[in-house]
């Protein structure tokens, strides 16, 4: 099947405005990437990593310095008209349109640039406004909207033209929990509702990437450091899962170390409180059940249980070498 996005050796260098001042910036450095049709794909990276640059190249706003990029099988450099027919783009915090138009008029205007029939466009706009809980604002002037309402409108602007591939550059930037959730839920539903719909989004929110994306590419300094499902990415960090248990006093702990999937086992008795603390480092989740039954077999009761897993943030810190936000 046709890849939605295919990028080969993509490099983008920004030259300084005046030759003497400043040096050139390599925003993208030999990037290879393939996004299949139907994927919800996330780009994760620190500020200045090159995310927006990549989206601009894919949306035909910027030319690569070297390498190739294909969207829906079309070369963004040569067949940009074909690409444009199939895409749309939304950026977080954008203030698109004209403040004195109403929300509905503004959205309608943008559909006209895609040649949509007015009646079809208006109907679809109404549906989307309702889905986003913005229906009561449709006749308000755009300039009176709050940031969140405005961003919902922007997202609608991107989806209303029913693109095959949509580029979302930090779509939930600066939004509250509710507004973000409305937008996230919509994105997920949208990709799943029809085959061959593809989303490429950038974000700074780990949770967002983890929850939404089928696959994630971690990008830093113009290079893709890793690209995989969130699950697999987390496996990359050698930070192990740990299990900590507080149990009522336990005398015989000899069996715990030999349970399959347990890599390391330590314990500590607290005679005063009549408790025992157990700590396991696991290589396999299946060990958890065995450990618990072993505790019960020895006639002890579990007082508390704590399991830790690596997060995407751990992956990110490991890859990029610095924290986030």
């Amino acid at each position: 099947m046709q890849s939605a996005v295919e990028v080969k050796g993509l490099t983008r260098v920004f030259e300084p405005k005046k030759k003497k001042e400043g040096k050139s910036v390599t925003a993208l450095n030999k990037v290879d990437l393939r996004i299949e049709s139907g994927e919800l794909f996330g780009l994760l990276g620190p500020n200045g990593a090159g995310k927006t640059t990549l989206l601009k190249i894919l949306s035909t706003l910027l030319l690569p310095t070297a390498g190739k990029a294909f969207v829906a099988g079309f070369d963004v450099e040569k067949d940009f008209t074909e690409v444009r027919k199939r895409i749309n783009m939304v950026s977080g915090g954008e203030i698109s349109g004209y403040g004195l138009l109403t929300v509905k008029e503004n959205l309608w205007m943008f559909t006209q640039f895609y040649g949509m029939k007015s009646s079809v466009a208006k109907q679809r706009i109404d549906e989307l406004l309702t889905q986003f809980g913005l229906a009561d604002k449709k006749d308000e002037k755009v300039r009176t909207l709050s940031t969140g309402q405005r961003q919902k409108m922007n997202v609608i602007r991107g989806f209303v033209t029913d693109p095959e591939i949509i580029f979302l550059d930090e779509p939930t930037l600066g939004l509250d929990v509710n507004a973000s959730r409305v937008i996230r839920d919509f994105i997920v539903d949208w990709v799943q509702a029809k085959e061959n719909r593809t989303v490429l989004l950038t974000t700074h929110y780990m949770m967002e990437a983890d929850q939404l994306c089928d696959r994630i590419a971690i990008i830093d300094d113009g290079r893709i450091l890793a690209c995989d499902t969130p699950e697999n990415l987390k496996k990359l960090v050698k930070m192990n899962r740990t299990l900590k248990l507080d149990v009522t006093s336990l005398k015989d702990t000899s069996k715990f170390g030999s349970i399959a999937g347990v890599e390391q086992f330590t314990f500590q008795d607290d005679a005063e409180k009549n408790q025992t603390y157990l700590k396991f480092i696991l290589t396999h989740d299946s060990a958890v059940t065995d450990i618990i039954s072993e505790v019960q077999r020895k006639g002890a009761r579990i007082l508390s249980l704590q399991k830790t897993e690596p997060t995407l943030e751990d992956v990110f810190i490991k890859m990029v070498g610095k924290g986030f936000e």
Binding site: Y98, L100, L101, E105, W108, M109, F110, T111, Q112, F113, Y114, G115, M116, S118
Partner: peptide, 25 residues
Amino acid sequence: DTWLITNLRAIRGRAYPRVIGSKRE
């Protein structure tokens, strides 16, 4: 033909805020 119609719609779309603008203000 659709290319023409698309572009005519685009022209109308972009002209709209200007026409409505002076009515609004």
